[in-house]
Design a protein around this nucleic acid. Structure first.
Lengths: 111, 111
DNA sequence: CGGAATCCTAATGGATACTG
DNA sequence: CAGTATCCATTAGGATTCCG
């Protein structure tokens, strides 16, 4: 069964939520949104506590999901640039809304 | 260090994102948002594939985070009603935005 | 430089049985 | 009815090493 009711496991909404519910995806998307184009190393510097493994695998998944572009230049040493796709950019207002809500209510929630 | 820069681990935004990045929180909040007040059993029926353990523990955490109210009646058999707090309700527009984006882009992403 | 491969640990979450 | 408690399997993710 495929339904639009998020209460059922096969729902697209749940599918999407599952993809975003990891430790790094939202953070990487936000970082790219602030900087437009970033190299692998710049992303790693901007998110200092992510491991290389998680940065690589999360970027790969976001690329497969068409939220980010990966552009590789045939140079030595290699250069790779990441940026948001159109779809990725369209997702950011929702992320920003979550972030703003988090800023407003943080004290209340953690206290 | 506590900063508002989400790129650092101590940031409130990351703290909040981590709390929402589990399997069931957003789904439970959405369900409560659609129904206003629900008993434990109704929630379980509405989300058929959640285990009792996860329903209980997620509800508990959401209550601790002041996103939902838990009202218990001293009856036998017991009755417990859950609903969104004011803070919880204010979070829902952001969730709805994510959901709408997911509906628009689902085919593109999973294909 | 931008990864991939491997190994390992910690955390998540499911199944089942039990309880006030 | 509304949960706990326990045990277990799976997965997420970190550290390290190596590669084109």
């Amino acid at each position: 069964m495929r339904t639009l009711n998020p209460l059922y496991p096969t729902c697209p909404i749940r599918n999407i939520i599952n993809r975003m519910s990891d430790k790094w995806s939202l953070l990487i998307l936000s970082t790219l949104n602030q900087n437009n184009i970033m190299r692998y190393k710049e992303l790693n510097a901007a998110i200092p506590d992510i491991s290389q493994k998680m940065l690589s695998s999360t970027l790969k998944r976001l690329e497969e999901d068409k939220l980010i572009n990966r552009k590789m230049y045939a140079e030595i040493p290699p250069r790779v640039e990441y940026s948001l796709t159109k779809t990725g950019k369209e997702f950011m207002p929702a992320v920003d809304m979550m972030v703003n809500w988090a800023l407003e209510h943080f004290e209340e929630i953690v206290s």
